[in-house]
Simulated scan of single mutants.
Amino acid sequence: MNRRALLAAGSALGLAAVPGVALAAPSSQLPTRAQVLAVMQRVNDYWIAANANPGNNQWARATYFCGNMAHYRASGTRKYLDYAVAWAEQSAYGLNGGNTTRIADNHCAGQTYLDLYELLGGANKIAAIEDSLRRMVNSTARDDWWWVDALHMAMPPFARLGALRNDTSFWLTMYQLYHSTKRLQPDQQGRVTGLAAESTALWYRDSAYTIDGSAQASPSGKPVLWSRGNGWAIAAHAKVLKVVPLSNKRGPEYANTLRSMAATLAPLQRSDGFWNVNLADPDHFGGPETSGTAFFAFGIAYGIGAGLLDRATYLPVLARAWNGMVATAVRADGFLGYCQDVGAAPAAVDPGRTADFGVGAFLMAGAEVAALTS
């Protein structure tokens, strides 16, 4: 599908691309690998210098460490690994809420614990995340993931433990929880709708935003399709597909969902390379936003590298996203701005706003971009 076809597809969905606001159009060519790694280093070094204490094991900081570990794997720079070890040891490789937690946000830390286990060994590193997810496997409840963020937080550790232990019960439970989020979550009237907006291939953040006659809408009455919420979704699919093969019964569904999301997102990209905070309404806090854009770049870059997305079609989309973030959101000293705060819906964004999860998403995207360059 070429750029013109993508634009036509977006128009058919009733969603429209929007020009950037007084920002130069970025290049459609990817920089070199060395240039990508240099920007990643600048951003990550700034974050680490500003956060000598690596922080808690909750979802926001855990998402940063997903990016930090991706940076380590891409660069081989030991200090990034050491920083992750210090963070994990500070929490004794434990989970917020303890091993009995079923809250997906609390499982995000397990992604880095699994990284460290794979690199350094030590059964203690994954004891808590494995125990917690095993408890969920052995239970009957499958409706825990009622918000879209949960997909990114918890699907990857389920997928990875299934592969590590050669135990498909982790994959089955993961799919059942995913299926509930996608198709079975009730709307505000109690009707079963799920969070996937099938007509657009995008996702609502939770049932408060699904279209049921009483759901929240933008000031102009359009749907609320939150950028970062959809970023969580596409990133989750990419991370799962790194582990679950297409030959698996559910592999094609994960792959087709990523493809459909990418096809919908491409024509919605702003001319400055970013995506708006509300993908359905560019006037709803319109302007560049880094966290959603970085997650989209991560998912699209993975899709290109894995052969799931046509390189000629999507590489310019990816290049504009990466180059736009570097030109607009990355300060000379490495501060990453334009990150929307913690929330569940679009909100105001400005160049002075940063966030640990935004830095993590940027580093994750950078690692995938670097893998496509030379």
Rank of each mutant, 00 (worst) to 15 (best):
P282C: 03
A233D: 11
R250D: 12
S260G: 14
I300F: 06
V317G: 01
A263K: 06
A263N: 08
E289P: 00
V326Y: 02
N323C: 08
Y314M: 05
R331D: 09
L246E: 11
V326A: 09
H237W: 07
A255Q: 05
Y314S: 04
R259E: 14
M261H: 06
L265T: 06
A321G: 11
A233R: 00
V277E: 15
K249W: 10
A312L: 13
E253Y: 09
K249L: 12
L265W: 01
P252I: 14
L315V: 10
K239Q: 14
N323V: 13
K239T: 11
T290A: 02
G305H: 02
P282V: 12
V330D: 03
A266E: 05
D272K: 00
N323W: 05
A332E: 12
G286A: 05
A262P: 01
W322A: 01
R311V: 10
A235W: 04
A236M: 07
A294W: 14
R311E: 15
I300V: 02
V244N: 02
G273Q: 05
Q269F: 13
F274N: 00
H284A: 09
P316H: 11
A306S: 11
L315I: 10
N276L: 05
V243L: 10
W232H: 03
G273E: 07
L258F: 05
H284E: 12
W322T: 01
N278E: 12
V330F: 12
G324S: 07
A266R: 00
R250K: 13
D333R: 04
D272F: 01
P245V: 15
K249T: 15
P282A: 14
A236Q: 07
V317K: 01
V277A: 15
D281Q: 07
A233Y: 13
V330A: 02
R250V: 13
P245K: 14
P245G: 15
R250P: 03
A332L: 06
S260I: 01
A262Q: 03
I234K: 01
I300C: 12
L308Q: 11
P316E: 14
V240G: 02
R250N: 13
L318K: 03
A236R: 00
G292C: 13
V243Y: 03
K239W: 08
S271D: 09
L309C: 11
N323M: 09
L246K: 14
